[in-house]
Amino acid sequence: MALLEVNDLKTYFQTDDGIVKAVDGVSFSVEKGKTLGIVGESGSGKSVTCLTIMGLNSKKNTITSGEALFNGENLLTAGSRRLREIRGNDIAMIFQDPMTSLNPVHSIGAQLVEAVQLHRDVSKKVARARAVELLKAVGIPRAERRVDDYPHQFSGGMRQRVMIAMALVNDPDLLIADEPTTALDVTTQAQIMNLIKRLQDDFGSAIIVITHDLGVVAEAADDVLVMYAAEVAEQAPVEKLFNRPFHPYTWGLLGSLPRLDIEVERLVQIPGQPPSLLRPPSGCRFHPRCPYVMDKCKQVDPPLVAISDDSDHLQACHLDEETKDREAKKLLESTMAQAS
């Protein structure tokens, strides 16, 4: 059984302008010790998906349906007390901006101790010892002394380490990292991604990495979910997704990405803008921007189905597989040829 299995998850927000379908029928699963990468542009629903699983959307004006089975237990119907037991204990989360995600008026020690004591009936002293242990594990120098410092006394990279320590302090089975490196500098990014990988080996947690950075996904994820306009466009193990991408949106993403290791004359550009989730396009939501658009695409929303010769590789597109294989190969050859 998968650690987390999400089936047909929908999150709708009622706003003054109408219903925003922020997540519209998303399914995936995460296995123990594995890493799932969710990629997509802003507004694609990748963060809302995870906040919904955690029960962190504000209850008011939010309609949720589907199921999110964590160890067989549906989190979407669990009571708020049960959810609180799970949050921070079985499932932990780290966020994009380490500068604002820690409370400025409490010392980091106090915040870590809080995380421990919310789930363990231990003395402050024991909790503090655990906090120091974790701060050491994430590479905070002089952790015994710095545990009493306040967030503003740490740099961005150090704060993200503190966030990670806080997330791991109760040894969670699943860690959700929402754009964990986006707000950080390149060299700090590398430090944090290395740290997350190392800790995954040590703690054996499963990880969901939400990111817009295809590089991070390519290197860190075992499986990848590509989201577009609140739906899953493509889902596959990482090598398959990059070596045989099967959705025009994925091609667009890969082609529009300037790369360090490749000299590209001109970037492929996906024309237009991501659609409004208030009034999404009919049929396939990508059709107004898709160069391969057919009449069928405008009317029928393609289901997410496995491609004929690979049951692991799911995609939602009407285009015939022959064309897709040809286009995928073309894209890949062009990058391989340019690779230095």
Partner: peptide, 23 residues
């Protein structure tokens, strides 16, 4: 964001309010 962090830690709403919001 830090209020969201507190909730993600599993803090009950009363504690979130007292320790993280009001202060």
């Amino acid at each position: 964001d830090y209020v969201r962090t507190a909730r993600a830690k599993g803090a009950p709403e009363s504690r979130v309010l007292r320790s993280h919001v009001l202060r």
